[in-house]
Design a protein around this nucleic acid. Structure first.
Lengths: 162, 162
DNA sequence: ATCAGTTATCTCGATGTCAAGACAAAGGAG
DNA sequence: CTCCTTTGTCTTGACATCGAGATAACTGAT
């Protein structure tokens, strides 16, 4: 009996008219997400980062050499609001991890690029990050992992249809 | 090829030394969580609520008659910091949905209880909420749901061990 | 009964987020 | 070439969150 069971049982008692099947699934997805976040945050914090900063640095690193994207593309790929991205870039810039430079193709825009420090930091952190992630699913065997991927895929399609 | 595949493929190209299996799972859990949040938020917003307010009202409602808990118990059950709970109670109180009253057993503490308005609101919203949740997993058949529950349970145990 | 330690809640400052609006530059129609 | 519209980014204000510290009240040992 986990925390989610506790909640669904309370609802069954108080509001027996409600079908809480979906709540069980969605509640566990939420708990799992929070557990993952919490653990991953430790890795980030050890290097002076948080999820927001890691997100931007990793997006730039993944983009490949020269590790440079416009704020607009970063927006799209990280799915945050424009003001949020301005703020993230400001903080990373004052940390010396990224640098704004002019965009020769469009002077409304900038190019945001990893600095030397930023590149070596993200390469180090992402190596630890995938190890953290691996350790969190280490107890699932190979067939579970495959099945889980499939179900998550189905659930995502179902949820994103609305 | 979904968004998570896009990211893992970028990493495979840029950092072929990394094993991104876990990233695929954890990334999909995160996407799913966000998709669920986004949809559930609509239901809350239709009634002037957000997830934070719903969380508190629902916790009080689930607790059963007389729909009253101390801030400390609310803290435990909603897993937020104490300052956060103070703020949530303040907002709900100014909305007229909950009311602080003195705790006869401990005068450091208060009792936070649903008002009439709060009770009828949360009963209405939670009814819609479970419908929203049900619709988001409606495309999964019964065997998928069962399997998914099992895997989420396993994954939770694995993740919370660390 | 007193005092030290614990507990329950609130306050405050720093962060991070979003949404709406401002502003400058680019692009297209005439 | 000139407008008008669109686009890309930043600014601002409102919230929500956390964590550390403050405060008041309870508890237990002596």
């Amino acid at each position: 009996m986990d925390h989610v069971d506790f909640i669904t049982r309370q609802w069954e008692k108080e509001r027996p008219d409600l079908d809480v099947t979906a709540m069980g699934i969605i509640g566990r997805v939420a708990r799992l997400y929070l557990a993952y976040q919490k653990e991953m945050h430790k890795t980030f914090a050890e290097h002076g980062l948080n999820a927001a900063k890691f997100d931007v640095l990793a997006t730039l690193r993944r983009a490949g050499d020269p590790y440079t994207l416009s704020p607009g593309v970063l927006l799209e790929r990280t799915m945050v609001a424009s003001g949020t991205m301005t703020n993230r870039i400001d903080r990373l810039e004052s940390d010396g991890l990224v640098k704004r430079s002019t965009n020769p193709a469009d002077s409304r825009s900038f190019l945001v690029g990893l600095t030397e420090t930023g590149l070596s930091l993200i390469d180090k952190v992402v190596t630890e990050h995938v190890q953290t992630q691996a350790s969190m699913i280490a107890d699932l065997d190979a067939s579970d992992v495959e099945l889980f991927q499939t179900l998550l895929g189905k659930a995502l399609v179902a949820a994103e249809l609305d």
